[in-house]
């Protein structure tokens, strides 16, 4: 349909959407996050298909996938890997942890201790892990999908604001619609293990590069700035990293729409996912209506 969007990308989107029935919008946001080179936080109850989404994205783009369940006794070393003493050679040998993968599903991230969380988030930010003074480069592309369940607060350490900022987007899968669930019950969704690769990692990186080259007009930058400035009147303003992320996500979204330039609609589409977790400080559902929606309504979109 769109000459710009490669058939492979279109196919990836549709096949992941077949695995997660009725979640087209969320799949698109997750793919957009992947293209923008950001990391994704999924806020949801168990059993909504979080790990399915992560695995489908990984399989679809032929990426190496690992899953770590974050528990309270998980140590940073469990994640990054450790230097193990090899008695035969009388030398330390680096044994890489699960962080050394291309798609990492960090399940229930809020159950781990603050130290373990920050080890993960640091690796996300710099793309590199440092163990006992030696740094080890992470593979590229590196995409973290973290999940947390904010309903379940007992014995958890919620991500602090500064760490939330490192996630480009937060989405929530939620219950499927009635029609989607009917289809699920009647025919069943495509099994994730049946999913073939639609795009190779090199192709994905090419798309990430093209995504950065999307054109942003003066007016659009102005609109994004208006949004960010408006957010700073409240308790938790959007950081410069957030505004960069907003533009990057909007660029990826416009690419998925098959355009070569970004429009205000693209910014509006990704804004709730990009901004909401930074505005409510990680406590969703605090206000009667999402703060990002209030902001979107308060800024004139007809410059």
């Amino acid at each position: 349909m769109d000459p710009l969007v490669d058939a492979a990308l279109q196919q990836l989107m549709s096949s992941v959407a077949q695995v997660l029935l009725g979640k087209g919008e969320e799949v698109r946001l997750a793919l957009c996050c992947l293209l923008a080179g950001g990391h994704l936080l999924i806020e949801d109850r168990p059993g909504m298909g979080k790990s399915t989404l992560a695995e489908a994205l990984a399989r679809g783009s032929a990426l190496d996938f690992k899953r770590v369940s974050f528990t309270s006794d998980l140590l940073p070393a469990d994640l990054t890997g450790i230097n193990v003493f090899d008695a035969r050679t009388a030398e330390f040998r680096f044994q890489p942890g699960p962080l050394f993968s291309q798609v990492l599903l960090a399940d229930e991230i809020n159950r781990a201790s603050a130290r373990t969380q920050s080890a993960l988030l640091e690796a996300m930010a710099v793309g590199r892990v440092s163990v006992d003074g030696t740094s080890h480069l992470l593979p590229q592309p590196f995409f973290v999908i973290a999940t947390q369940n904010s309903m379940d607060q007992v014995g958890t350490s919620p991500l602090p604001e500064a760490q939330l900022d490192r996630f480009l987007m937060r989405i929530s899968l939620g219950f499927p619609s009635r029609d989607a669930e009917r289809a699920l019950l009647a025919e069943g969704a495509l099994d994730v293990s049946m999913l073939g690769a639609c795009i190779d990692p090199v192709g994905l990186q090419e798309w990430q590069r093209r995504c950065q080259q999307q054109h942003c007009s003066e007016k659009l930058i102005g609109y994004a700035l208006d949004l960010v400035v408006a957010s700073r009147r409240g308790a938790h303003g959007l950081s410069p990293r957030a505004s960069q992320g907003l533009i990057a996500a909007a660029k990826a979204w416009s690419l998925l729409q098959g355009r070569d330039h970004v429009r205000i609609d693209d910014v509006q589409s990704v804004f709730p996912a990009v901004a909401e977790h930074r505005l409510d400080a990680g406590v969703p559902g605090g206000a009667e209506q999402p703060l990002s929606q209030v902001l979107l309504r308060s800024v004139d979109a007809l410059p």
Binding site: R263, D265, L296, L302, P303
Partner: peptide, 24 residues
Amino acid sequence: LQRSLRLLKRFGVKAMPGESFPAL
């Protein structure tokens, strides 16, 4: 944009707060 908005006003359609032009 402004001229299109004036035209839309003749149809009785005015922009809602935060509404983008394509949405309008």
